[in-house]
């Protein structure tokens, strides 16, 4: 990636406790999470360095309490970080004045909250129009725009309801609609689909992929659901005790887990569904005959892998052969978890 990343954070720390700023100054290097806790502090985010490129969808995963929400809150400066730097589009966000920060949020950022964060005294439509109202858009325009997104999330006909008159899933969709209203370039989603039923969930995921394709939004997405992560992610970051254990493409994470923890975390996943032919292709031996598509998963190629007789199967990307995949390697993955 040659262009500057949209979000770039270096050695970011977020420590909770009585006086974090003083604490971090005197804290020894490589102090572990438990040692910090013994001192009466909690490392919400621990020495995280990560970059998110334009149009990329980064998925953050990890157990409950691992610091996912906290990290995203640091990106949007809902939390002031204790150490390190975060740059958004080249701008150090800790240096922003209150006014600049408000401008950034009004025009560039959107966020969906884990427990929705709806305003209880406003109707669905008024909740969705809220960011537009804060921007000072006139009433008719903002109602029209809010109506559009309310339709988009499938809440048409409910726009006059109050949050407490809606189900959990419906409330969550209001939260999604609200974050969409200003058409943000950068979008933070904290378990945005957790309360949705599988059908709507799938629909919303498709909608997301479509939006990202069309508008090239940069998205940071938190989820507990691996299937969801696989469908959406360009890269996955796995967190534990505030630190990022590994951040890579899904294929790499299942094929080459960086730590024992990541290996355990990904153990249950069906690798054949994750790994793509392109990843297994090596340019040294291109093989012969009909090529397979680089974007196809091993599972999709199962039949071919079993019945084919070639040792090396050529792999093509957009019609261009980029290398060969050893059939044995594919079969190993298929059988390992099948």
């Amino acid at each position: 990636m040659t262009e500057t990343p949209v979000i770039s954070c270096k050695n970011v720390w977020k420590i909770f406790g009585p006086d974090p700023a003083a604490y971090i100054k005197q804290m020894p290097q490589d102090h572990s999470f438990d040692a910090i806790r013994a001192d009466g502090y909690i490392a919400g985010v621990k020495d995280v360095s990560i970059e998110v490129g334009r149009g990329e969808m980064l998925v953050i995963m990890g157990l409950s309490g691992s610091g996912k929400s906290t990290l995203v809150r640091c990106f949007s400066r809902l939390h002031d970080i204790t150490g390190g730097t975060i740059e958004v589009e080249g701008q150090d966000i800790m240096q922003l004045s209150e006014k600049e920060l408000i401008e950034l949020r009004r025009n560039k950022m959107g966020m969906v909250f884990q427990s929705f964060g709806l305003l209880p005294h406003r109707t669905v439509l008024e909740n969705v129009a809220f960011p537009l109202e804060m921007r000072g858009q006139d009433k008719h325009e903002r109602r029209a725009r809010a109506m559009e997104v309310v339709k988009l999330v499938g809440l048409e006909g409910r726009e006059e309801y109050f949050p407490r008159e809606l189900s959990g899933g419906q409330q969550q969709r209001v939260g999604i609609a609200r974050s969409l209203a200003i058409e943000p370039d950068i979008w933070f989603l904290d378990e945005p689909f957790s309360a949705l039923d599988p059908l709507i969930r799938r629909e919303m995921q498709d909608e997301f992929l479509r939006l990202q394709d069309m508008l090239g939004k940069t998205i940071v997405f938190i989820t507990h659901d691996f299937d969801e992560a696989l469908r959406l992610a360009d890269r996955i970051a796995i967190m534990k005790d505030g630190a990022v254990e590994q951040c890579d493409t899904p294929d790499q994470i299942v094929l080459h887990p960086a730590t024992e923890y990541v290996r355990k975390f990904t153990e249950e996943i069906d690798k054949a569904r994750v790994v793509h032919a392109g990843v297994l292709a090596s340019p040294d031996n291109k093989g012969e005959g009909e090529p397979v598509d680089a974007g196809a998963t091993i599972q999709e190629l199962a039949k071919l892998l079993v019945h084919d007789t070639r040792d090396v199967i050529p792999v093509a990307k957009q019609g261009q052969v980029i290398g060969g995949m050893e059939r044995q390697a594919g079969l190993t993955i298929l059988l390992e978890t099948g």
Partner: peptide, 20 residues
């Protein structure tokens, strides 16, 4: 979280108090 939603909606301090 409601307050944070207000902040992410770009509320100024006064708006946050008045509307959230």
């Amino acid at each position: 979280e409601v307050v944070e939603a207000g902040e992410m909606s770009g509320c100024s301090r006064w708006q946050l108090l008045r509307h959230v």
